[in-house]
Design a protein around this nucleic acid. Sequence first.
RNA 1: GCCUCGGUGGUGGAACCGGUAGACACGCAGGACUUAAAAUCCUGUUCGCCGAAAAAGCGAGUGCGGGUUCGACACCCGCCCGAGGCACCA
Length: 948
Amino acid sequence: MSPIIGEPADGFRVDFDSNPSLLMEYRFRDIERKWQAQWEARGAYRVTNDPSRPKCYVLDMFPYPSGAGLHVGHPLGYIASDIYSRFKRLKGFNVLHPMGFDSFGLPAEQYAIEHGIPPAVSTDRNIANFRAQLDRIGFCYDWTREVRTSDPSYYRWTQWIFLQLFDSWYDRRQRKARRISELKEILETSGNHDHPCPGDPGLSLAPGEWSSRDEKAREDILMHYRLAYCGHGEVNWCEALGCVLANDEVVNGVSERGGHPVVRRRLRQWYLRITEYADRLLEGLATVDFSDSMKEMQSNWIGRSQGAEVEFEVRTGDAPPDPARRIRVYTTRPDTLFGVDFMVLAPEHELVPSLITEDCRAEAEAYLAWVNSRSERERMAEKRITGAFTGSHCIHPFTGRPIPVWVSEYVLAGYGTGAIMGVPCGDERDHRFATHFGLPITNIIGEAYDGTQANPTKDAVLVNSGFLDGLVMREAIDKAVDRVEADGIGRRRVNYRMRDAAYSRQRYWGEPFPIVWQEGIARPLPEGELPLLLPPLEDLRPGPGGEGPLANLPDWKQTPDGVREVNTMPGFAGSSWYFLRYMDPGNETEFCARTASDYWGQVDLYIGGTEHAVGHLLYSRMWTKALFDLGLIGFDEPFKRLVNQGKIGGDSRIAYRIRGTNRFVSAGLRDAYETDEIHVDVSMVDGIELDTESFRHWRPDLHDATFELEDGKYRCGSRLEKMSKRYHNVVNPDDVVERYGADTFRMYEMFLGPVEQDKPWDTKGIEGVHRFLKKTWRLFMDETKGCIVTDGEPSDAEWKALYRMVRRIGEDTERFSFNTAVSGFMIGVNELTDLGCRKRKVLEPLLVTLAPYAPHLCEELWQAIGHADTVLDQSFPTVEEHYLVESSKAYPVAVNGKTRSELVLPVDADQQTVEAAVLADPVVKRWLEGKTPKKIIHVPNRMINVVV
RNA sequence: GCCUCGGUGGUGGAACCGGUAGACACGCAGGACUUAAAAUCCUGUUCGCCGAAAAAGCGAGUGCGGGUUCGACACCCGCCCGAGGCACCA
């Protein structure tokens, strides 16, 4: 990484307005400052909702305004979307390209606790800093549409949408959300027979039963249907953070942030019933343009599996079978039903205590106690096979064979039914279990099972399988379930890995819930009382009993009508719908007018990182579907096309300190010593050469550092790793913009490689792009003569150079290939330079084409060649194809697939002409060695191949 | 273990549908201009062989091994390596 050292070449400043002759050289700093101010003053990026024009909605994932500010990796996606937006504007679209801030969240709260600065204050400060950094890069955001999730005028509507979800339930028959009032009617007139309760599957309401329940009981039932509901559940409790974490915030049993241990705890929590949307979220992926890996991640997360639930009767000792004590297992392989050799229940399974017999009690209870003593983390990390026999048996429903029932921690209480049937010959894990405990193994797949390893095939032919004998497993699946259903011992069932999303946090810096608890009933605040403001609070420590900091405000918590909910909403609340607010940001009576959302519709292009693959994207997709179901918007997928920008990695520089000394040895010589690695701040290094003076002044402990040089230089080691303060390898865009200009920075970030790809930052290459812009400048301007653009008629060669470039830029920009577009500009400008082209008719369209990439330079030159209007609103040039038509083509001529010669032939030459020309070619003759070719393949406009 | 995406010169990368591999840059080497530097411009730059050199030529070459094809970086089969995601999910 190249350092940003010293003053730039043209360091002195001159007032360009009073001294216009100095504009003859490319003074990017003055030019950029001038046009940023003018665009701002003119409202050049103001967007109106104008239904008479075709729309294009280009959106960046809005940032969390962290205190660290932007590094060079953040703007990558912003630049791509900015270029695309400007390009679409030139193509005649009304482009919505807004920006805002996801400004609620944990870091600001953490910062407040550590430094005593209120989150609202530090957040404002960070936003101001972000805004300044973004502005220097010259983005075309319409800042009048900015949203901040922590602004009351915004979160008022986050609260409002929450209330809509609270007032909705999911009708599985109609596959859509409906209002709670409609549910009440249904329950009242016909009970819940047609609408089983998602939150309480056992609930059965006969017609008429509804009205006989008291209000509390009715509200409890409704709560089990609501899309936003309050429930008690096992949650991921993190003692260190004093809060509950969502499943996707827990990684391997520790918190994603901070890596603190997480344990299971039962708490009252708000949830979003996203599981009801599982199928639609899955199906919606087919209608949307996301990358394969993104779709893959989402469907993995949803984790749909198809199978059957089968009930097994239990026999404990001599007691008669008890229909209430059946074990329900979930399996995706009902075809292996005859291969069941044991049952395994999760230790938490409710039947476990009643299944343990006297003979087995000591051992089984010891096992359960052991499991209970282990944290979730330990259980998940466990690789050994453990378990205990309960002493009870099941009866195989088809063979009557007794099957031993075991308990083991590898079966999860929360997935499926919390019980599985063990089929050792077909399942790897079951096989290990059976072998470990010496259980007999039934083979139902004949030779497909080798006796030592399970075979999970679906293509073997079943044996030992009663009515399934002779069938291929794949086909036996349906047959088995048909029989299970016919015999009334089970049913088809679809299962999901995804859980409902935990929607409350015991935190301060988030949206307060517009809910008041009244004798155990959650009462929504009337719409007119929104927003429910987040009260100012000094002390942000958690409240008592796992409640959030708001519980420390008794006056706020207690209202005449009851007790306020003191939890706040999670980070994803505000970000789940922000793309709608940009459409109608100032609306004080609606979250977004239907006319606005009908006009702008789906986001045509959404750019952001992969890290939001399952969280943010699934939540906002679900919110969109719910709002659509309720008729509040007209589309049910928010993002038509998603592009994931790659991460820009840091290129670290490392110095080697001889152990136990303050002497540093150059990288090439370090093998002679035992050394420790020190990450050196990249701003002190030129290439790999360390500026030893700056290094000495970097930290007090380095003042007396000494160096062992090679060739008079101290060379650093280098390593590619994450761009992070910790490694001192962060490059700030401000520095790059100051040294090379925003236009160079924009184009260089694009030139680095495909946007989707991860790549290291290397400042070295930026010179090439900067040279290109200077070269472009010199097409228009001469240092001594000033503007040198002429009015003559361009030559065919000049037209051709222009249109070839325009065509390429148009195609590349449309398909997001910005790196090749930049190279297309370079080729075009090189050609025009070689041709000495100064013609206005060529150079004007060049400026328009380049404007999305280098807006400041283009606007300046646009003005310099005599325009009073802005280059931003011109039309993208139309390619005059006839200048590009070639009459002849230099064909590569291959003999047996190897290129040997080149022949210039007319493009429309027929086969005979081509063959004659080829055979007459001396090089071809030499390779033929007098033989007659078998065939001459001629692909017009491509190549010629002679087959001997 | 499973899934997805990758692997091309010293470096970043290009080759869009199976048709001249290495565009465009960086770096490096040499040169011009200059008192000098910056800036700018020119030439060369995949590797090996042949050659004093240039030109020309020959051979190899897109992670490895096979295959399909007149022709493969691209398609098929089997591996290796890297990045990311999922993972006792029944």
